[in-house]
Design a protein around this nucleic acid. Structure first.
Lengths: 153, 153
DNA sequence: CAAGAATAGTAAAAGATTCAACTATTAATC
DNA sequence: GATTAATAGTTGAATCTTTTACTATTCTTG
């Protein structure tokens, strides 16, 4: 019974994730720019914290470093970001927004905020808070088991 | 404040999803078979409901029909499934497990169940139940807004 | 200080996803 | 019954993700 419930929970996790991406991606078309959900995810972070190094950025958006490298290459191609060697540690690359990349902020933030606001009209604040807590518990559990199984191997 | 909370919730959703896939994929290597997390996801469903048509399968595992087509091609290549035209509606393809595909069940189900059981040792049953409820609310909200915005467009 | 270990980022290859367009088939409409 | 619309699945192209291996750089150890 517990296992079945957990299975249902994981399925819901996958479903909600897929649905959210779809929601954003489908409605991004209204903004006349050539970026995808994944690029937007990167940009949204940079709009908050420009100049962060690549590894930290990968950690913060939960992407593999090589996935991020690919995405950044595409963003550089569009002249939205620049990779800059970190003077303090030449293994690192800092990611900087270009002025063009910064300009997109005014286009996309109202859109994303609009979606987030729409969501808040359908879920009670207390529900959001609770959902965060429970999901955090789940995510922490997943990470712990990941570690435990790594040790066993 | 509400928007910020919602943002945090979405981030957690993405993170938990990524973490779960990683947990499964990393530990699948211990089973000496050449399948990925995504293929396993498909197989797990077929082990429960063999012979389902492709569209229904895509719906049930929340994948785009073309993604599923790609995955099924890979599973067919490995002789794990077979596509069979549906005699009642020739637009449809039914997906059937081969005996080889069925044999994998005994290898993978104990593994996946083990992971799910591990998770249940770290989260209270009541927490799982609540998490399902809240996540379902979130997912329903996402779908509703998707529909509303589709109508607006 | 030198050697070995660890780290950040890139690249290649394969798998996976998405979007748009297509074909064959079925359903709906007149 | 004929025509139009809708549906299931495939395909191509681009994007994205993962794993592995690599290089350059930095850190750690003796």
């Amino acid at each position: 019974m517990d296992r079945e419930r957990m299975r249902i929970l994981i399925q819901l996790l996958i479903k909600a994730n897929t649905s959210f991406r779809f929601l954003i991606q489908q409605n991004m078309g209204a903004i006349d720019e050539d970026i995808t959900f994944e690029m937007l995810h990167v940009l949204m972070f940079l709009w908050r914290e420009d100049g962060i190094n690549q590894q930290e950025l990968a950690n913060r958006i939960f992407k593999d470093k090589s996935s991020l490298s690919y995405l950044l290459t595409n963003l550089e191609k569009r002249d939205l970001v620049k990779r800059v060697a970190d003077p303090n540690d030449r293994r690192n690359k800092q990611i900087r927004l270009t002025s063009k990349g910064l300009d997109l902020k005014d286009k996309y933030i109202p859109f994303v905020d609009g979606v987030l606001d729409d969501l808040t009209t359908k879920i009670q604040p207390e529900e959001v808070k609770k959902c965060i807590e429970y999901l955090h518990t789940l995510e922490t559990a997943i990470l712990e088991i990941s570690k435990e199984r790594l040790i066993i191997k």
